[in-house]
Design a protein around this nucleic acid. Structure first.
Lengths: 262, 262
DNA sequence: GAGTGGTCTAGACCACTGT
DNA sequence: CAGTGGTCTAGACCACTCC
C-alpha cells in the first residue's frame, strides 16, 4: 500500500524531527541517501521534494539539502491603521520619522529600501467593482516594492489603486518622486480632504506564481497571503483599494477586534 | 536558458488562459501532450505538476487532467465575534437557530455536520505560553470538525483550548455530548461568569501537511491558513486559545477595522 | 478491458558551488 | 576540479475510473 517514496520521506522526516539533523544542517548527498534506502535517485528525489513542499527542508543547487530554519515572522497588525490615521495630521518631522512597514518588521527606516512606480490606468472589470466605479474609470495605480537592505530578499509587493479624480486634487500625489511619502496614504488622502473611517482587509492564501517566486525570492514550498485592503471614508465612499502579497513564511497578519461591553 | 518543462508548461498555461480549455475541461492525455510537444512523459508530467502547484489544473487519477474551477469562498469576518457576543446572552431559542459557521458559509444549520471531541490535557510549552499559564497546567482541549453534508468535503478543523480551572466551574462544559452548544464559546464562557472583551487573531499561510491533505480532502497545490484566535476577558485574562485550519482555496478571512473619528 | 494517471528504474548529461 | 543537485530520456509495470 505505502509507496516507496512515502516510506523514505517518512523516515527522513523522523530523523530530522528526532534531532539527528538540526536546523541548518546539511543532509547526506542524494546519491548517498538513495543508496542507503536502496531506491533509485529519482525516487529519492521525489521523497525529498515532498519534504521540501512541507517546508521541512530546503534544496540548494550545487550545495545540498538543508534542514530549514524557522524564520522570524514580521507581524502586520490591523492596529497599524489607527496608528497611521493618528499620524496623518502630525507635523512633517514626526511623519518622516518612521512608517508602517517599519512598525511591522521592527526594522529601522534606513534598513528598508523602497521603490515606487506610478501609473495612470483605466479600471478593468474586477478593479472597478472593488472600487465601486464604472469599468474604464481613470485610476492611479501605484506599485511598491519593499526590500530589506541587510538580507537582499524582498519583503513584499503592494499595488494600490486610487480614483484618479481624487488623487489629481493634489498634484503632488501624482508624482512618484515624492515617495516614500511621509505619513503614508492616510496623510496623502488627508491633503485632499479625506478622512478614513473604516478599513476592510480580506486575506486569502495560495501558492505563489512563478513570477512571484522570482520577484520575492521565495523558496519552492512556501505559500503567499493576498491581502486586499479597502479604505472607506466617513461618507462611505471607497477611497483606496490595495493588494498586498506577503510571503507566508515571513509574515503573520494580526487582526484585533475589540467588543462592545455589556 | 529556459528548461524544456518550463517552455511546455508556459505554453499549456497560455492555452488555458486563452480559453482553448475552459474551467472543468479535460486536457488531452499526458502521452498525447508529450508526443505533441516532443518531450518524454516524465518531462511532460513535470510541466503539468508545475501547473498543478499554481492551482491552474487538477489531476484526477485514472480520469485525466482538468482545468480547475474557481471555487466560491466562504468568508470568515471578524464581525462574527461581536455577533457571537451579542447572542451569548440571548434566549435558548435564538441561540439554537444558527451558529457562526453558518454565518460564514451561508449554509443552513442542517447542511453542516459537526463533530466534537473533548480531552483533558496538560499544556505543553508552546500552548502554555499562548494561554499565559505555567507549562503542565490542566487544559480542556476540544477538537471540532465541520463538514458540509452536500459536498462530502470537510470545511475546517479547529482545536480550542480553555484553562480547565475555568471550564470545570460548569460541568456541562466538560461534556462533549452537549455539542453543538447553542450560542457557541461566548455563551459557554458566559455561564462561568466571563465577559469577552477582545479577540486577537493571527493568520499565517503554509502548504498543508500530508495529514491535512487527507483530513480536509485538499488537492495538492492548495495552501492553508492557520488562524490562532486568542480571547481576552474584561480583566485582560486569556480565556481561550483556538487554532483553526482553513483551506486556502475555500476560505477568505476578513478583518474590519473601524477608526476613531477626528 | 481500454484508457488514464502514478510509481519506479538505470543512466546520461547539464548547471551550480566551493576549493 | 570535485561534489552536488537539476533536467531529461525510454520504458516497465501498477492503480484507478469508466464503460
Amino acid at each position: 500500500m505505502a509507496k516507496r517514496y512515502e516510506k523514505v520521506s517518512e523516515d527522513v522526516r523522523r530523523r530530522i524531527e528526532s534531532g539527528e539533523y538540526s536546523p541548518g544542517d546539511r543532509l547526506p548527498a542524494e546519491t548517498a541517501l538513495a543508496a542507503e534506502y536502496k531506491v533509485s535517485l529519482p525516487t529519492m528525489r521525489q521523497a525529498l521534494a515532498a519534504l521540501q513542499t512541507e517546508g521541512l527542508i530546503e534544496k540548494r543547487h550545487g550545495r545540498g539539502n538543508f534542514v530549514r530554519k524557522q524564520r522570524q515572522r514580521a507581524e502586520r497588525s490591523n492596529l497599524r491603521h489607527q496608528w497611521e490615521k493618528n499620524r496623518a495630521r502630525a507635523d512633517l518631522k514626526e511623519r518622516s520619522s518612521t512608517g508602517a512597514t517599519e512598525l511591522d518588521t521592527g526594522l529601522s527606516i534606513k534598513q528598508l529600501a523602497f521603490h515606487a512606480q506610478y501609473e495612470r490606468i483605466q479600471a478593468p472589470e474586477e478593479l472597478a467593482t472593488a472600487l465601486g466605479v464604472e469599468p474604464g474609470t481613470a485610476v492611479l495605480k501605484r506599485t511598491y516594492r519593499t526590500r530589506s537592505t541587510n538580507e537582499d530578499e524582498p519583503l513584499n509587493v503592494a499595488r494600490s489603486y486610487i480614483p484618479y479624480e481624487l488623487a489629481e486634487q493634489n498634484p503632488d500625489l501624482l508624482d512618484e518622486s515624492q515617495e516614500p511619502w511621509p505619513g503614508g496614504t492616510m496623510n496623502q488622502l488627508h491633503t485632499v480632504g479625506v478622512e478614513v473611517d473604516r478599513v476592510e482587509e480580506v486575506i486569502t492564501a495560495r501558492p505563489p506564481t512563478g513570477e512571484e517566486v522570482e520577484e520575492l525570492g521565495l523558496m519552492a514550498g512556501v505559500s503567499v497571503m493576498d491581502v486586499r485592503k479597502t479604505l472607506y471614508d466617513i461618507s462611505g465612499r471607497i477611497v483606496e483599494v490595495a493588494d498586498v502579497v506577503l510571503p507566508g513564511d515571513r509574515y503573520a497578519v494580526k487582526c484585533v477586534t475589540t467588543l462592545e461591553r455589556w
